[in-house]
């Protein structure tokens, strides 16, 4: 505690860095997972391939994945970003695909029968109805990325993980605790705020009471 109060600015900077890293990783993940998930939901074979690949990436322990990436990409924020994104891609892509496949068949039949084009049906019917499940995937991904980003400090990502690793090497318990508590609070806050958004979205889509 003493360390955290005396070094408030360092802690704040690390937290902001952590947030920025996760924010970028989440944005990139979404940009990849959304189209990939949409495609996978439509093509059963692609679905299998995507799930197998993403699953394989997810099975590799986070730290091992980072270590494997170092010879390829070196150290720093860039490689850290790549690692975080590839590690969390499965969860997000799978959620997008599952969310789209869960849209009730009679609703899609009605939409087709009334003359929706493919694109319009996706934008006006499928994505709005899939939104709560997709958001659940975003929530899981955000929490996962906040935790994985802590480990990514190992390959130079910076952020709260830096404080923890420094604390360990300097045998500075307060610093370790400050970094760990901050990272945990960040995860809890992200989880809770996104969960609330999800509940509101569920009500808005009229699928849950």
């Amino acid at each position: 505690m003493v360390w955290a109060i005396e070094n408030g600015d360092v802690l704040l900077e690390a937290t902001l860095q952590h947030l920025a890293l996760v924010g970028q990783a989440l944005a990139i993940s979404l940009a990849i997972a959304l189209p990939l998930g949409i495609l996978a939901a439509r093509r059963p074979r692609l679905h299998g391939v995507v799930m197998a690949l993403a699953g394989a990436l997810y099975t590799v322990p986070a730290l091992a994945l980072f270590a494997l990436l170092v010879p390829l990409m070196g150290l720093g924020q860039g490689p850290a970003l790549v690692a975080i994104v590839s590690y969390s891609l499965l969860v997000l892509t799978r959620n997008v695909a599952v969310a789209l496949r869960e849209v009730p068949a009679d609703i899609l039949d009605a939409a087709d029968g009334m003359g929706f084009s493919r694109g319009r049906r996706l934008l006006r019917v499928e994505l709005p109805l899939a939104a709560p499940v997709i958001l659940a995937g975003i929530r899981l991904t955000a929490v996962l990325q906040i935790s994985v980003a802590t480990v990514a400090a190992f390959i130079g990502a910076g952020g709260l993980g830096d404080l923890i690793f420094q604390g360990i090497t300097q045998d500075h318990g307060d610093k370790v605790v400050a970094g760990a508590v901050a990272a945990s609070l960040l995860a809890v806050a992200a989880d809770e705020s996104l969960r609330r958004l999800e509940t509101r979205l569920r009500l808005a889509t009229g699928l849950a009471g």
Binding site: P104, M114, G115, P128, L207
Partner: peptide
Amino acid sequence: PVKLRRGIGYVIQGTGLFPH
């Protein structure tokens, strides 16, 4: 087909109403 369907009313068992 897409334009055709806009000119033909379609009612199904489960109604297929859009819940959102």
